[in-house]
Structures are given as structure tokens and as C-alpha cells.
């Protein structure tokens, strides 16, 4: 093999390696999602189940502030009550309302966010409008429940927590925006 041939052999191998690594970057996406699923890190959009028989801790109260935002879509979005008080372990139901102010049909997806961050671990949501996308016809109004429980395991120094939702518009054209991808469960 001449020197030039030997050179182009190495070049070919390295080019193949480059392409493989480019693919690897994309392969990290399903890999990451799998890890999150297996370890239960990213289950914002899945309903929780109550396994053990939870005791209600009547010795303390937690104030849950409810927050609602929209980003880039012409909806009104608000909780019907700005906060609720509950005992840890108690099942709570709150209502939210969305209204489509525009004259087109819009798909929206709500993404939750908790404060303190630790709340994510101790909040069990049995039902939520955020588990699926919401489709509103022009001027349609909808009231939607969220059913949740705060586990008694929440450290006692938190007497106030916040649950916040933000609605984002889902394009109807892109493949990734189908309900399946959003509903990871």
C-alpha cells in the first residue's frame, strides 16, 4: 500500500468515526429520556399513584399558592382560588380556568414548576390538565381540576409552597408536537 493510500484509509476511518459521533449526539436524546423515565426524574407529565395508605398529618398546615402563566398564546389562564390550605396527606382538588381569546383553534400544553424544588419529590398528582394537551376552540372556556396530595414527608420547615403552571402553544405541524410525545406515560 502506498503512503497516499494509507493516508486515505485513515481519513476514511476518521470520517466514519466523525459521522458516528454526530449520530451519537442525537442518540443521547432517547438515551436521556430513557434514563429519566427509568429513574423517575422527569415525570412531570405523568399521573402518580398512591401506593401506601397515607396518614393525614393533622398537626400542621401547608399553604399551597397557585400560580398560572401563559407564554406566547392568546389565552386567559387562572386558578379559581389563589391559594389553599391543607394538611399533609390530605387529598386536595383545585380548579383552573382557561379561555381562548382568539378566533382560531389553539393547542396548548401546560408545564408545571414547583417551589421549593424539593416539592416535586413530595407532591403526588392524581389528576391534572397538564397530563395531556388542551385544545380550545375560538372563545371556548374550560374549567379543569387538579387533584393532588402533599406527602407528610415534606420537611416541616416548609409551611408555604407554590405550584405554578405555564401554558405554551403547541404547533400543529411539527411531528414532535403530537400528543404522544407530550404524554410520556
Amino acid at each position: 500500500m502506498s503512503a497516499l493510500q494509507a493516508n486515505s484509509v485513515i481519513m476514511k476511518k476518521l470520517l466514519i468515526f466523525t459521522v458516528v459521533m454526530f449520530g451519537f449526539g442525537f442518540a443521547l436524546v432517547p438515551f436521556y429520556e430513557k434514563i429519566c423515565e427509568v429513574t423517575g426524574i422527569n415525570n412531570l407529565l405523568q399521573a402518580d399513584t398512591l401506593t401506601e395508605n397515607t396518614q393525614v398529618d393533622t398537626s400542621r398546615w401547608v399553604t399551597i399558592q397557585l400560580d398560572a402563566n401563559t407564554r406566547g398564546l392568546p389565552w386567559q389562564f387562572k386558578p379559581l382560588q389563589s391559594s389553599v390550605r391543607a394538611h399533609p396527606g390530605e387529598l386536595v382538588e383545585v380548579m383552573y380556568e382557561i379561555r381562548n381569546d382568539s378566533n382560531r383553534e389553539i393547542n396548548g400544553q401546560a408545564i408545571p414548576s414547583y417551589s421549593p424544588q424539593l416539592l416535586a419529590k413530595h407532591l403526588k398528582k392524581l389528576e391534572c390538565f397538564c397530563f395531556s394537551k388542551q385544545v380550545l376552540k375560538p372563545n371556548e372556556v374550560r374549567q379543569m381540576p387538579v387533584q393532588f396530595m402533599i406527602e407528610p414527608g415534606l420537611p416541616a420547615d416548609f409551611d408555604t409552597v407554590t405550584i405554578s403552571y405555564t401554558f405554551f402553544e403547541l404547533g400543529s405541524d411539527s411531528a414532535a408536537d403530537t400528543g404522544e410525545r407530550v404524554n410520556k406515560s
Partner: peptide
Amino acid sequence: TNFFNAAGG
């Protein structure tokens, strides 16, 4: 696409 866009999953 929605690789990093929370709204799209």
C-alpha cells in the same frame, strides 16, 4: 422541533 423546548415535551 422540540428537543429542548419544554412546551413541546
